[in-house]
């Protein structure tokens, strides 16, 4: 079921427009608020819900398990490295909180700078290895598998 926007919370900043994979979150030129231009093309991927700094976007649930009136709130925090979900039922009494990590390191700090890494030499270029291999295949415990090392050969046709 598609996203919808709480018009009173939206300030038209356009974060949802930037992120939507379907390109269906647009800004209404008259109201200067975001809205879903094509609800039946919505993936329910929650990208816009997470991107919205004002928590102005929600997603309608399917009527069979989530009657109208519920809401699924989400707060994604790159600095703290967590995502928090809160499911509110329509009777207002049940309220489920879920917390999950999104990263184990300060955001963006775990990526190697490849432009500064040691360049591959000719021997590596001619090998069958990818970046960080063979170390990362088995973490220093043996090299890359080959058909030969595994005692295999390619056979033609379908066989079992």
């Amino acid at each position: 079921m598609p996203t919808f926007v709480y018009m009173t919370r939206c300030d038209g900043c356009g974060q949802c427009v930037d992120i939507c994979p379907s390109d269906i979150m647009h800004i209404d030129k008259g109201l200067r608020r975001a809205y879903n231009i094509e609800p039946n093309m919505c993936w329910e991927c929650y990208s816009c819900v997470k991107a919205c700094p004002h928590h102005a976007i929600d997603v309608r649930g399917y009527a069979d398990f989530a009657p109208l009136g519920h809401s699924v709130r989400v707060h994604r925090d790159e600095e703290k490295g967590v995502i928090a979900w809160r499911i509110k039922f329509r009777n207002g009494k049940k309220d489920m909180d879920l917390l999950a990590p999104i990263t184990t390191k300060p955001w963006g700090s775990g990526h190697p700078k490849l432009s500064e890494a040691a360049a591959p030499n000719d021997e590596v270029r001619k090998s069958e290895l990818l970046y960080n291999e063979p170390k990362y295949v088995r973490m220093d415990d043996g090299g890359l598998h080959t058909l030969e090392s595994n005692g295999l050969e390619i056979k033609e046709g379908v066989y079992y």
């Binding site: 490295g81 990590p101 999104i102 990263t103 184990t104 390191k105 955001w107 700090s109 775990g110 990526h111 190697p112 960080n132 990362y136 295949v137 973490m139």
Partner: peptide
């Protein structure tokens, strides 16, 4: 997969 873990994937 081991690299993803390095980058911070839980």
């Amino acid at each position: 997969v081991h690299q993803f873990e390095d980058w911070g994937m839980p």
